[in-house]
Nucleic acid binder design. Structure first.
Lengths: 152, 152
DNA sequence: ATGAATGCAAATAGTTTGCACCTAA
DNA sequence: TTAGGTGCAAACTATTTGCATTCAT
């Protein structure tokens, strides 16, 4: 389960291969990003980053998160609330999402049969499958267990 | 296959029930929206509308498309290009989307087994399924058939 | 008459970009 | 030394909102 290379090492490798430069900001942002949780908005990452290095600006965080995606270290998600969310990539693992529209809890799921049918569909339409997005929206059945259901 | 009520009639019924008002704009926008195609951006709808009634403003189109969604006449889609797209609702029909990332062609698909598994997943997590989004991205296998593959 | 709808312009939110300065290689 | 990176502020894009005016009921 332990990756062959740490995320920091994978970032370094990518940066080197692309002829880019290693910077303090990039490593700080990666560390904060990995530590802060999952499905984070840019704003959330920015907050975590600035807790450590207040001088790091929002533009850098935007640029760096995109770099992480290119480097295969993160995935960008869009759950329809108008802001991008980022999630650390765990190699070889794939999952889709289930979102409670009341409390915004995000569950992850994996359903090989769905993946298989999906591949068939792409095939049938003459499309080379590159990626997909599959999200299920609903509400927690037991509201008592749902931490943030609407108050009113 | 012919709906029991025309879209215009369904809109009128919704407007009446909600105590809203019938306006020339709403009926013009609905007509243009239905005639102009599918998976249209607001800008595209606006163009179609203004071809008929140049005085109708963008804000009205935004507001009216949301009204159509509330009335069950349209679906809002988000294919990750940062702008909402609208599609006429055909009652009782449901489909998901397959998008060519080169030519932006949008195919529709329906896969009951996927729907079924999806319902199971929601169940398993204690979520009452309300809606979902399932999109498959890839490129046309035969570029010659793909009307807009990148030139460079 | 009166409350809703419209059209405009201004405001917003998230994100991107231009540019002068900084820094890793 | 010198390309690439950073931080700030300004620009951008899609969308929403405030408000005076118009219109359906």
């Amino acid at each position: 389960m332990t990756p062959l290379l740490t995320a920091q090492a994978r970032l370094e490798r990518y940066i080197e291969r692309q002829g880019l430069k290693q910077t303090r900001q990039r490593s700080v942002i990666l560390e904060a990003f990995l530590a802060a949780g999952s499905h984070l908005s840019v704003e959330e990452v920015l907050r975590a980053v600035q807790a450590v290095q207040p001088a790091i600006g929002a533009a850098t965080v935007y640029r760096t998160l995109k770099l992480f995606v290119e480097a295969g270290l993160a995935h960008e998600r869009n759950f329809g609330d108008g802001q991008a969310r980022y999630e650390a990539a765990h190699d070889d693992e794939h999952h889709d999402h289930l979102i409670c529209t009341d409390c915004h809890t995000i569950f992850e799921f994996e359903e090989p049969e769905i993946e298989r049918r999906q591949a068939e569909v792409a095939d049938k339409h003459g499309i080379r499958l590159r990626s997909h997005r599959h999200e299920i929206y609903g509400e927690c059945v037991e509201r008592e267990r749902c931490p943030r259901w609407p108050r009113s």
